[in-house]
Each structure stands twice: as C-alpha cells, then as structure tokens.
Design a protein around this nucleic acid. Structure first.
Lengths: 359, 359
DNA sequence: GCCTGTTATGTTTACGTAAACATCTGATGG
DNA sequence: CCATCAGATGTTTACGTAAACATAACAGGC
C-alpha cells in the first residue's frame, strides 16, 4: 500500500464529503430537533421512540406529532453504537446458484425480518479456505451480531481463530463437527426413506446417483443409502457420481441405461434426476415401468417432470427459521453452543417410482 | 401496542444486556485501548487505521503491533455515526424464487463487496403496494445509504413519498418511468433478435409464449415480438400466455402442438421453453424439424435441454454491476438521476431452432 | 402537615470514531 | 540567530442515542 497516495487521495475525498453533507438540505432530523419542536427534552423523545411507558399521553402525542412533522427517523448507527448491537445477521455463502442455498437464504431473511433483524450478505467469490478466512476476518469490522454460514464445511476447518470472539455462528446444511451449532436437513433420514420405499416396492436393490465428492450433503446421502442397503442385506451396486447438474445426471443416465439389472435409482438431487429421466427416456427405458427414480429436494418443477418425480422434500424454510432462532438464542447467552438440529424430510410420492416389472 | 407491557418487558431485558456485556471477557478493544498500549494518542491510532500519511514509520509499526495484540477491530457503528454513511446498500426484492432476481442479487453483492460496500437484504413478503411501502419506510431507520429495487414496478407507483430524501435508488429489471435510475436488460433487443433469427431461417411467422401479464419484462418481450412481426409484414399469431413456470410452458405446448401452422415459437423464458419442448416431444412434433423453439435467459441448464436450447442470453452479472455503479455514482452527487441503462443481450445459437421443413 | 412513594420529566454522561484545531520539534533560509 | 515552515503528534469536540441519575409535582397514609 502506498500510504502517501492513499492520504493525498483521502483529503479531497473528505472535503467532498463535508461539502456534500453541508449542501444536503435535510440532514435528517435528530432527537434534539424533535425535542425542540415538541418542547420536551430529547430523553422524552427517546422514551417515546422506544415505546417506554411513563410518558404522559398528551406529551407522547405531541412528540409523535413533532416526529411526523420533521420526518424523524432514528439513526441506526447511533443506536447500534449506544446499544452495542446491530440487530443484523450476516450470511456467508458461496454462490447463490444452488436452489437450496437460495431458499435457505430467503427463509433466513424472512424470519430475521420477523424478529426485527436485518440480513447482510457476505458473498465468498471462490470457495477456498483463504476466501472464507477473508470473509470471516472482514466480519469483525462488519456491522453484524451473528453469522449464519451456508457452506461446505471443509473450508471452515482452520478458520475459527480469525473469528471475533463475540460473534455467534450457526452453520446451515453442513457438518461443522462440534465446533458450531449446526442446522441441517435430515439427509440420512430422507435417504433412508427413499431407499426403503423402493425396496418396499419390491426392487432387489437400489442404485445411487450421488452428488460431488466434496459435498457433505452428497456424502451423507450416499452413506445413508449404503447403510440402508447393507442393513437390509441387499447387494450394493457401484456408486455413480454426478455434480448436481442436470447435464451430469443425463450422462450418468446413459450409463445406467446400459445396466439391465438396474430397476431403481435414488438420485441425490432433482436436477440430476431430471437429466436421468431424459437419458432413460432416450434409451427406451421407461419410468417407472422399467426403472424407478426418486430424487431429493422437491424443487418446484419436480411435479412437472415427465413423469412427475417422486422425491424427498426438504423444508428449506424450516432450516432458515431454525438458523435464525439458533443465532438469536446464542446472542442471549455467553457460551456458544454446539450440536446439530435436524429438520425432518418428507417423501413426496408422485409417479416416477413403482413396482418392478414382474419377471 | 400495550405500552405498559413493552415497558415492563424491556426493563429486565436491559438488565440482562448489561449483565451480559459486563461478563463478556473481551468487549472488543477500542482505539483508546490500542492507543494506551502503543503509548500514543487515540487520534494517531485513527490515522494509522485509516491509512493517513504523516505518521512516523516507527510509530505506525508500534500501533499496528498493538492492534494485532489486542485484536482491534474498528467499530463500524461508531464509524458510521461519525462519517454519516454506512457503506451499505439495501436490496429490496420480492421473492428469491426467480433465477433472474437471484443472479442479479448475487452480482450486486459481489460488485458491492468489491467497492467496499455490504449488501443488506430487504425481503418483501407479498408483492403488494402496502408491503413495498412498508419496506421503503422501514428503510429510513435501516443502516443503508442506497437502495436497489428488483421488483415489478407497478408497486412503486405511490410509494415515493415515504422514501427518506437522502437515500439513493436504482431500479433493476423494471420500468420505473423517469422517476428513478433504471438498469435493465435490453428486453426489446433480445426479443427482436430472436424473432429476426427465426424469420431469417425461413419461418413464415413466429408464435410467442409470453410471461404473466403483471410482469413488465414479459410485456416488453411481447411488445417487441409483435413490433418485429408487424415491421416485417408478417401475420401476428394469437399470443399464448404462461406464468414463467415449466408447467405452464407444458400446458401451452399442448395447445401449440395442435396448430399445424406453428413452426416457430419464441418463449419468454427458458423454463417455459423447457415445458414446451416436453409437450411438443410428447405430441410427436419434433424440435427443431417440425417446430423451432427459442427461449430467453440462458439458464445454466439450457445447454442440456433436449435438444440444447437456442436462447437469448441475459447478462445478469452486468446488470448487477451497473446497479451498484449507479447507486455509487448517485451517492457522489446531490441530485438523483433518472434514465434507463440497457444491458445488451446475445443470441446463443444451439440446436432447438432450424429452417422449417421444406413444403 | 410531613414523610413516602409514584409518575412524569429533565440533565449528565458515555458509546467509539475522526475532523478540526492546537502544540511541539527540528530543519531551512535569510 | 531567529523567523518560517513542515512534519508528527496530542487535545477537544461532536456525531445521535439511551442508560443512569436527578428533580419536580402531587397523592395518600399517619
């Protein structure tokens, strides 16, 4: 950093700012202005503003009237400074590209708003340790009281240190060991239900189209799939991997279509299931007559697939709600929590899975 | 509101807060703490913290060392209060459900971060005037310097008044008349290109599968489609309407498949195009041999459709960038701007459109 | 009629930062 | 050798809010 430069640059900038502020006609009325107009002390204005009792009804009315007249808005910076809290939750996430992340984020924003908290977005450009560490350390000077992390947690490993001590953390949809509070969809339960349902229909075994190796969610779903098969004493077919995309599902589907003994596939998400359906259709293997398919997520389009997709429904809204609940709970206490909350899934039965063709 | 209740409730709360803060071991070192440790005045710490020149190299080193030791982080609330700006941009949006909104938001967050600005999310639960007005008025006490609105603008009509005067606004992907700065995708240009391309392939005319009536984007695309046909002296087939969803595209597709003279369809988004493809395929009308299809958006999956979809690419990232640029520019000046910036589109040619079957 | 308690309000102060202004040191030039 | 000036640093103050503390008016009990 060239400090001389930054200084010479900052001088005119500061001058411009002062000038700008001076020329602004309405520098936002302060409590003092309201107090003056209403003929009371600023403390009384504060009391009215915060809804304290012990203010005479008539006085309150006058203050409210003065506020209205001046268009008074409490200055949140001053409030935050005085109260020592921002009433803001930061959300760290890599990419808003996946449905799950977005919907979780939306639910977080909604329930945070409901609790009087704002949500600040902290996007991480590329999912590397350094980037995440960077986001975490910038956090310290950011106006947030707590953080919700929606990320694959591999990246959280050595990052803890750089976290300002008073900031509370909840990790969504991941596996943060016992370091943080975790809110997650019950990946294992959902996978178990899917596999069990397919076996219950009479399939000898179930193939699995997994998500990418780096993903914890993918790993959990695959593990549960394997465990359930083993538990039921069924053979475990080789695992097929995709990368969550429909395209990868399509490619995997072309392979699976060549396996005559593959009568049931559990896909780790709906998009891959979509590609899979297309590939099977293209290869003349009919769903569900020849092959049964179950997805995961229950994206809005799932019901419009051909055929409508039987899938494991994830309650993203609930995950978001519990994340907010989690950080707010922690803010009320000194010790950070750890432990995992699982949000249950629900198997949505549509038309893509059925009994195997009689043989 | 029961004021008595809110008061009695707030007393113990305040007590708890005090206790909590007192028991916190590290109440975040302040400048004064750093100054004491480094043996300088807090003003010098401030100078170092803000990178001003005119600080002796040795002194600077000591201050930085003290900062490191105490884990000093500037208090953003105090900074915001002093400087009169939050370095935060608010984004008002209804629903993160549509691809476009999400990707625009992501781009906004990224470029804002790049400029040293944070992004605060202001979700509007239901898209009614009242809700939007509510969001706008809450804005006044929210810690933002500017707002980017990603919304259908019907809702913005009578809302202007409630906006705090010093907050700058940019509207994305909408039509805000001349009230605000608008950044939008060149809907008309993209539509024109699509229609022109299809006519150029030899089609007599082009059908249009439009988005919902309330959507400005849908309206613009439909208008441009109509204008281009009229300009070319072609007949204008009846407009078919969907609601952006694949399901609605499927339903529309079933209708269109019945029209023997329908050889080319311009769908207002890729998801409807997807449903359309499925319906046509199901009805034995092959794409592109019997019917050519062009979409709009170029979602990531578009290249994996069956057949890969020729579509109009939207540069959401650029829209986001320009939104941020727009608010930052306005923050440097007193008078709000108005006027529209159009981000160009690009026709991505894949396999879903071709010459009509020779007749 | 005075003490006590309650209700309504005002005054002081501190939160952490940074601009504005003040001071001090040493060097340069006439 | 002193006036001048630049560089480095310290002191004061204000940003808008709200807790803590102070005060005033008045009611009820003895």
């Amino acid at each position: 950093m060239d400090t001389a430069d930054s200084a010479s640059a900052s001088r005119p900038q500061a001058a411009a700012r002062t000038r700008k502020r001076a020329s602004r006609r309405a520098p936002s009325a302060s409590m003092a202005d309201v107090a003056r107009l209403a003929g009371v002390s600023s403390q009384t204005v504060s009391r009215v503003s915060n809804g304290y009792a012990g203010v005479n009804e008539e006085t309150r009315r006058q203050v409210l009237e003065a506020m209205r007249e001046l268009g008074y808005r409490p200055n949140s910076a001053a409030r935050a400074l005085k109260r020592g809290e921002f009433r803001t939750i930061g959300v760290i996430t890599f990419g808003l590209s996946t449905t799950g992340n977005v919907r979780t984020l939306e639910a977080i924003a909604t329930s945070a708003a409901h609790e009087g908290y704002a949500v600040t977005l902290l996007p991480v450009a590329v999912p590397t340790q350094d980037e995440v560490r960077g986001a975490f350390s910038r956090l310290g000077e950011l106006a947030v009281d707590a953080v919700i992390v929606i990320l694959e947690v591999h990246l959280l490993d050595a990052v803890t240190l750089s976290l300002p001590p008073h900031i509370k953390v909840v990790v969504a949809d991941s596996d943060a060991g016992d370091r943080y509070t975790v809110v997650d969809t019950d990946q294992a339960g959902g996978s178990r239900d899917a596999v069990r349902y397919l076996l219950g229909l009479g399939h000898e075994t179930v193939w699995h189209l997994a998500g990418p190796e780096e993903s914890f969610a993918a790993q959990r779903r695959a593990d549960a799939w394997r465990a359930e098969l083993t538990g039921a004493g069924r053979p475990t077919p080789p695992l097929v991997r995709g990368d969550w995309s429909a395209e990868s599902g399509y490619r995997a589907g072309l392979e699976l279509a060549e396996q005559p003994d593959c009568t049931a596939v559990f896909a780790a998400n709906d998009q891959m299931a979509l590609g899979l359906l297309r590939a099977l259709h293209e290869r003349g293997r009919y769903v569900p007559d020849d092959v049964s398919v179950i997805g995961f997520d229950d994206i809005p389009e799932a019901g419009s697939f051909l055929p409508p997709l039987t899938t494991v429904h994830q309650d993203f809204a609930e995950v978001g709600r519990r994340c907010v609940e989690g950080v707010l709970r922690q803010m009320g206490q000194d010790t950070p929590e750890h432990g995992t909350t699982l949000v249950p899934t629900r198997l949505v039965v549509r038309d893509s899975a059925g009994a195997p063709r009689a043989r």
